[in-house]
Nucleic acid binder design. Structure first.
Lengths: 120, 120
DNA sequence: CGTCGCGCTATGAATTCCGTAGCAAGCTAG
DNA sequence: CTAGCTTGCTACGGAATTCATAGCGCGACG
């Protein structure tokens, strides 16, 4: 079919997702956030809203095809919304998720200095 | 000699990673966790340690090639360790990360029931 | 020896992602 | 009206990643 190109379905809690048939919300989340640029897009929206092109630039020039896929999935899952002339931004529940991601950014600083990060 | 196959390099804080040249730890983390199965592997190790095959089964039969890649990356970044005859498990700092991921699982339950997941 | 489970590799195909180019629509100014 | 600009997004070919399946080498049994 492919109305346009590819109509990949965004992972939605309550339905089976890639890698899990259980339908547990956490599995849908792990699938959604495990896609390339998904976490980064959310991260770059943590502050103010951004237009498509501003978001693309913030994500180090990610290709618009992929960005559009991620943004659509994040909108379908309700984490991101669009406003007329306002660009993209986090929805209320999306902002809740980011609130949990913030301490992880702080953790990553400790991680960077961690001695357990040995290479081999 | 790491691998006969292409040994992809794990993202390491302090060095440029895919999609970001800044070297900021949070970018390395977003790259590391944005790879397929990475979050899921950490999630399945949140409890007790698991052997390679047990971990594979827990992840709905992910292919061993990918699992080995993820596990190697997670080990190189110090989040996961291996014990002789003990299988894979979280390192101390890895357990710190999971502590932050736990409330996100609780959040996902609220997300699943969220009405904002229906609009647009 | 035969068999088992283990960690892990090999391989070819399917899917996803990337980089670049460019279109249609909505301005704004001349 | 026409030219020039920005914005959201699609097209396309090629590169990278992920997938499913088969199977190797090893050690522990019996």
């Amino acid at each position: 079919m492919a109305a346009t190109r590819k109509s990949r379905t965004a992972p939605v809690p309550g339905k089976p997702v890639r890698g899990s048939r259980s339908g547990r919300p956490v599995m849908a989340l792990l699938d959604l956030l495990g896609r390339r640029w998904a976490l980064r897009v959310l991260w770059e929206l943590r502050g103010e809203r951004r237009t498509f092109r501003a978001l693309q630039e913030a994500c180090d020039g990610v290709s618009p095809a992929v960005l559009n896929d991620r943004v659509r999935e994040l909108r379908e899952s309700g984490l991101v919304d669009v406003g007329e002339g306002e660009g993209y931004g986090l929805s209320p529940i999306g902002r809740e998720l980011l609130a949990h991601l913030a301490p992880i950014a702080a953790w990553s600083e400790r991680w960077a200095a961690s001695p357990s990060r040995r290479r081999r």
